[in-house]
Write a protein that binds this DNA or RNA. Structure first.
Lengths: 197, 197
DNA sequence: ATAGCCATGTAACCAGTTACATGATTGA
DNA sequence: TCAATCATGTAACTGGTTACATGGCTAT
């Protein structure tokens, strides 16, 4: 159900083809959902059947024609309604952590290699997000204000990747050296006060 | 496919009923996967058909009988094989972030309330993880060594929840005050050196 | 009384993945 | 020549959720 809403928010932001949407999901400033083109085309079809989006065919000469989708009035309403409904955080499903849990069963080196592989993946994602962040802050205030919300989602992505990298490094080290973890010094609780409400 | 492996790792650790497994997934030191009892029972059935687990019926007088599952030799082998195969990090799917992305469309207060609600959920999860962490460090070295790997998965959970709370607080503040985000000072890149390989 | 825990499951459905399919253009 | 980008889709399948179902015991 939620992919539909993710699509609606993106189209609300700017009309586009299924292909466009797939790109936006992949790259950067829409780092909050993920979908393959196959699924996107299916959902666009459904959304259209429900009259929440509609498209115009855009003929192109040297490339395939595009169906440029845009959100309808009804789609806009549906999206606003959804914005008011609570959503729950998704359940965690990290196969890698399953592996760490059972690391004593597997080949020691294979696990270390896997941790490093993941670290490389997250590092790559982080780098690209940081680049987007740099671009964001290079813009002037008016534009920054306009892209404030997408930036906040990007920030979430940056934190996420950053945090994974730290955990992966820490875990790699502890497993590689077969060392006992130390109690965190001041790190984990934090209990940050929020500034005056 | 992966729930099967998550079940196998847990059973490898200690035999138990479907109900037991559901508890272990929910509560704490197996904070790496999530599944409902319905799904678990299905998967146990399949795993048994594949001879990767087996059960003994444990009759009880005043409560329903339990099927106590344990991993078989073949299951153990299959698990070890899986431990050597690479797994990819899951795709992110955060409906909440979709909402932040489109926060300008919705009711301002509703969004702030939603951010706070999530903060409360994550805070609660964090508290319970921190309690488990305290318990872990209260044990003596031998036991700590034995539970080292589950502890590392717990650490991942602690980081995760901690990080979410920070992002939620930061985001709540910025949206509440309609303020422009500031460039992170030294926070986000970090680029921590790993200790001598 | 009512809720919650223990303990098992089936069935219908929905969401997401993987495989398959086409076909022109551009750059290494 | 090979891979990538643009652009669309269908079909089969698998993984996961939700609803439904049962039933005794214990604690408030």
């Amino acid at each position: 159900m939620s992919l539909q809403h993710a699509i609606l928010v993106l189209l609300e932001n700017e009309p586009g083809s299924g292909y466009d949407l797939a790109q936006r999901f992949k790259s950067g400033i829409g780092n909050f959902w993920n979908a393959t083109h196959q699924q996107i085309y299916q959902e666009l079809k459904k959304l259209r059947a429900e009259k929440l989006v509609d498209f115009e065919l855009e003929a192109q000469t040297d490339r395939p024609d595009r169906k440029v989708y845009r959100i309808t009035r009804a789609g806009h309403q549906a999206l606003k309604r959804w914005m008011r409904e609570p959503v729950d955080p998704p359940r965690l499903r990290q196969a890698l952590i399953t592996k760490v849990f059972g690391a004593h069963l597997g080949d020691h080196d294979a696990i270390l290699a896997e941790l490093e592989r993941h670290r490389a993946l997250h590092r790559k994602a982080l780098e690209s997000y940081l680049e987007l962040e740099r671009q964001y802050f290079a813009q002037d205030e008016a534009i920054r204000r306009r892209h404030r919300l997408p930036y906040l989602t990007l920030r979430c992505g940056i934190r996420y990747e950053h945090d994974w990298i730290e955990w992966l490094e820490e875990t790699h080290e502890l497993i590689a050296q077969d060392a006992l973890p130390q109690a965190p010094v001041l790190k984990s609780p934090a209990r940050r006060r929020r500034k005056a409400a």
